[in-house]
Amino acid sequence: PLPLHPLVSALPIVEELPAGLEEEIQRLKAHLRRLGAINPNAPAEYAETHERHQFLSNQCADLEAAAERVRQVVVELDELMESTFQTMFEAVATHFSELFTTLFGGGSAHLELTEPDNLLNTGVDIVARPPGKRAQRLALLSGGERALTAVALLFAILKVSPAPFCVLDEVDAMLDEANVGRFRTLLKERSQETQFIVITHTRGTVEAADTIYGVSMASDAASQVVSLDLEQV
């Protein structure tokens, strides 16, 4: 027999059960019945679940670290874009002011940022003062003035960042003869770095071309293309 007598004899003598003890015993028994039988596979299932939890926790930590690295890259790219945009904007603005005066034979113009403190979302406004007029926004200029201002901006961009070729579709349609002459001169200068494909009906602009392609309609209503290399004429 187990040596329980010393332990039992040391227990206090209970003459009356405490109030509510029977109810507590019944409650605990009911709780044990709800728990059901002991699962002998519980340790193995716990180990498997714990391993899965560790794996997912590590994956989550890796994803959070990767997300932080991406956020850092975004910050660095934003800073780089702001710096590059500021540099390019200042260069284009300088050339634009010079080319505007050249194309108009006077006057002045400049570029303005709509949100100088938010370079990633800012817009750009053009303020122009043609010769003999007051400074005003682009929308208030005449059609010919807007066209010439747009040409000045385009050539300013090409001067800062030359492109291999550029297509101009009737940009000289609203220019008078004097402005066409200045446009043609600037076009010839920029053609040293950029090949221009110009769609035009203006004779002065055609005279600046190296090669001319004419499109006409034959008697059968089919289009015919005729080319002329002016350097060989």
Rank of each mutant, 00 (worst) to 15 (best):
L158M: 14
T205Q: 13
M174G: 04
V124G: 02
A147M: 13
K188L: 10
I126T: 07
G204K: 02
F165H: 04
N179T: 05
S161Q: 15
A178V: 14
A178K: 11
V206S: 12
R134N: 04
F155A: 01
H201G: 01
P130N: 02
V180E: 14
M174A: 11
R182A: 01
G123A: 09
S161F: 15
R129D: 01
R190W: 12
G204P: 03
S161M: 14
V225P: 04
G132K: 13
L153C: 04
Q192G: 10
L120P: 10
G214R: 12
G132N: 12
L138S: 04
L120R: 08
V206T: 11
G204M: 03
V215L: 13
T194N: 05
I212T: 09
T202W: 14
L141V: 02
L148I: 05
L154K: 12
Q195D: 11
R137N: 00
V233P: 00
S223Q: 12
F165K: 01
K159E: 04
A156P: 09
Y213V: 00
S161A: 14
L140V: 03
S161V: 11
K159P: 01
L158P: 00
E189S: 11
F183W: 07
A147F: 13
T202R: 15
F196K: 04
F183G: 05
R182H: 05
N121A: 10
Y213N: 00
L228A: 11
V124S: 04
